[in-house]
Design a binder for these strands. Structure first.
Length: 425
RNA sequence: GGAGAGAUGGCCGAGUCUGGCUGAAGGCGCACGACUCGAAAUCGUGUGUGCCGCAAGGCACCGUGGGUUCGAAUCCCACUCUCUCCGCCA
């Protein structure tokens, strides 16, 4: 969310940002309501001032008299007017709130202009893509051949876009999030959090999933609760409506969670395999930082996520998102894309964003720069560290052998009792 | 699920029965000043947030939302959350 005063004073900047991001929002409607609100507010407050003054007089007068009765009668009328104005104000406020919640964050000046993913800029790449002297299989075939991933039965039990793991497959999933949590907590200084997987609407609004992206989330019928699309939601909302001490910053958290996404609007895309599931596992990194440090913190957050892929020896590249592919809430974002040999493409496996004060303002997360000074909004960041399902897909494909087996990345051996290879049977 | 208690400022905690001069006593913490070579202790002063306004100033906020009243932290209703006891349960 943007500051209302800022919006009022810089409508052109907002218009430019929406243009760059390709976002639509009713800015003119918001500005019109803002003017209307201020005049109503003035009127209401003047009446309240009168009421406060006269009520005090009535109290001081004590007892009953004709003069007092006259004042009461008069204030009855004033109160009725106030009630009416307050009702109008309430409606305008909530309408403005909705409009404000639908304005996108401003892109950082360094973000390249562009309309879609083809305009993203490769910042660096790492690792050597494996060369095969056979035709590499897609991970869903490898998983089926080894009998470690079962899509048909997951479909029977639940439906499409769900997966079921057996044996070494299940263990690989578990090994990966243990490995990632261990790495981030011991090497990168993150505090581990194990959050609820259901959150309320206020939390979803705080991080920006609501109100704009309601159809992307699973909602529990008859409740105010949503299945989390990412641990970003519960973890960022840890400090909702709090004022942090400056010495606490920066705060680094990492969390494993299952993630649930409705994938509305993705019909027919990535229908096979682990790439696009309604439920997947992920280790998420979340930071709360001082505003002046957030861009540096984005760099180190991205490096922390990259380290996972480096240790797993999976080739990847880092993409700087262009304005058109940036999305609603981030000011700046890097995607990590991992190599998938069967498709011969890089696929997003992590998304690292600096939201500046956009989420902090929605969620009321502030810090006090100096005792006695005014509290101000922190900057929040998060990034996948990394998505597990896509990591499994990438490992199966990059580490596959001609005989159908899959070598287990070295760094995972301790999580497999030293086992080095997944074979059929 | 049943019975009861509670929710007040950064924290603790009065005020609620008996509505008004209470944005809210007192304490802690914090900031500044005095004392000190320096510190502790002590003393003094100050210390919430948001909104409107060029300003002076005004308005709002005592869990949330309604209601009663000239006037609500205080009375009434609903809801949410917390705690205690009982029941049930992985």
């Amino acid at each position: 969310m943007l500051d209302l005063k800022f919006v009022r004073e810089n409508p052109d900047l907002i218009r430019q940002a929406m243009e760059l991001k390709g976002e639509e929002a009713d800015l003119d409607g918001l500005l019109a309501k803002d003017g209307e609100r201020r005049s109503l507010l003035k009127e209401a407050e003047e009446l309240k001032q009168i009421r406060n003054r006269v009520s005090k007089e009535i109290g001081q007068a004590g007892g009953e008299s004709e003069a007092v009765e006259a004042k009461k009668a008069e204030m009855r009328e004033v109160s009725a007017q106030i009630k009416e104005l307050d009702e109008q104000l309430r409606q305008i406020d909530s309408a403005m709130e909705q409009l404000l919640l639908n304005l996108p964050n401003l892109p950082d000046p360094v973000v390249p202009r562009g309309s879609d993913e083809s305009d993203n800029v490769e910042v660096r790449s790492w690792g050597n893509r494996p060369e095969f002297d056979f035709t590499p299989l897609a991970h869903w075939d490898i998983g089926a051949n080894l009998d470690i991933i079962d899509f048909p039965r997951a479909g029977k039990i639940t439906g499409s876009r769900f997966a079921l793991y057996y044996g070494a497959g299940a263990r690989l999933e578990r090994a990966l999030f243990n490995f990632m949590l261990d790495l981030h907590t011991t090497e990168h200084g993150y505090r581990e959090v194990f959050p609820p997987f259901l959150v309320n609407a206020a939390s979803m609004t705080g991080t920006g999933q609501l109100p704009k992206f309601a159809e992307d989330a699973f909602r529990i019928e008859g409740t105010d609760l949503y299945l989390i699309p990412t641990a970003e939601v519960p973890v960022t909302n840890l400090h909702r409506d709090e004022i942090l001490e400056e010495e606490q910053l920066p705060l680094y958290y990492c969390a494993y969670s299952a993630c649930f996404r409705a994938e509305a609007g993705a019909h027919g895309r990535d229908t096979r395999g682990l790439i696009r599931q309604h439920q997947f596992n992920k280790v998420e990194l979340v930071k709360f930082v001082r505003p002046e440090e957030s861009m540096d913190e984005l760099e180190s957050l991205t490096r922390d996520a990259e380290k996972v892929l480096q240790l797993l020896e999976l080739p990847y590249r880092v993409m700087l998102m262009c304005s058109g592919d940036l999305g609603f809430a981030p000011a700046k974002k890097y995607d990590l894309e991992v190599w998938l040999p069967a498709a011969g493409t890089y696929r997003e496996i992590s998304s690292c964003s600096n939201f500046t004060d956009f989420q902090a303002r929605r969620a009321g997360i502030r810090y006090r720069p100096e005792t006695g000074k005014k509290a101000q909004f922190v900057h929040t960041l998060n990034g996948s560290g990394v998505a597990i399902g896509r990591t499994v897909a990438s490992i199966l494909e990059n580490y596959q052998q001609e005989d159908g087996s899959v070598v287990i990345p070295k760094v995972l051996h301790p999580y497999f009792n030293g086992r080095e290879c997944i074979t059929a049977g």
